[in-house]
Simulated scan of single mutants.
Amino acid sequence: MTTPQKPVRAAGCVLWRRSPSGDGIELALISRPKWGDWSHPKGKLKRGETHGQAAVRETLEETGMTCELGPELPTLRYLVDDRPKEVRYWAAEAIGGAFVSSAEVDRMRWCPPAVARDQLTQERDKELVDALLSALHATGEVR
């Protein structure tokens, strides 16, 4: 009998900002060349770090943006190389910063929610767009 593996613990943000045009919001998506995908910023927790701290740190590292955490969004659970991974997400408003490409993240783009949903590679990440919109409507951040 095999002992179930502990999940890899990670955290991330669905990063958003008010559109510069004043028409709605935009979401930040990152391109990761290692995986050949478009996703939300996320990463593994460091020792002694809370999920919320990891989400803010990873967002800054991958997007160059500082953010303010909002409502927690659904936790995603999936397998990576046959090992369970659990990623807790938050809605997070971008409050400053600028993107600088790196080996890990080579591009970032701001997109309206519908475009972001189409651009995201993984289906599970697309579900977070709807969760973000619902959370922002519920808190009155966006109408």
Rank of each mutant, 00 (worst) to 15 (best):
V142A: 13
G12F: 01
V8S: 12
L45T: 04
R18Y: 08
K42E: 15
L69I: 01
Y78M: 04
S39E: 14
P112M: 12
T2D: 11
E104D: 11
A55E: 06
D106V: 01
V142K: 10
D23H: 11
G97T: 06
A138Q: 12
R143M: 11
F99L: 04
R17E: 13
A103E: 15
S19D: 12
Q5N: 10
S31E: 13
S31P: 10
G70E: 10
P41I: 00
T2V: 13
S21I: 04
G64H: 00
G64V: 02
T3Q: 15
M108R: 07
R18Q: 09
G24H: 11
V80Y: 09
G70P: 02
R117K: 14
G64F: 01
H40E: 10
E127T: 13
A54N: 06
I95E: 07
D125H: 10
E141K: 14
G52V: 05
R57Y: 09
W35M: 10
P112R: 14
L73Q: 03
A11Y: 03
V87Q: 07
A114G: 12
M1R: 12
P7V: 00
K6M: 14
P113G: 11
W38V: 06
R88N: 10
E68C: 09
R143D: 14
Y78G: 07
I25N: 05
M1I: 12
L120E: 03
G22E: 09
S19M: 00
P84W: 00
A103D: 14
R83T: 05
R117Q: 11
E141P: 10
L60I: 05
Q122C: 08
D125F: 05
P113L: 13
E68Q: 12
V105M: 04
G22Y: 08
Q53C: 01
L15S: 05
R17W: 10
K34R: 15
W16L: 09
L15W: 05
T50F: 07
L60P: 00
A10D: 02
K126Y: 08
E72D: 14
D82I: 03
P41W: 00
R109F: 06
E58F: 07
R18G: 08
Q122G: 04
L60K: 07
Q119M: 13
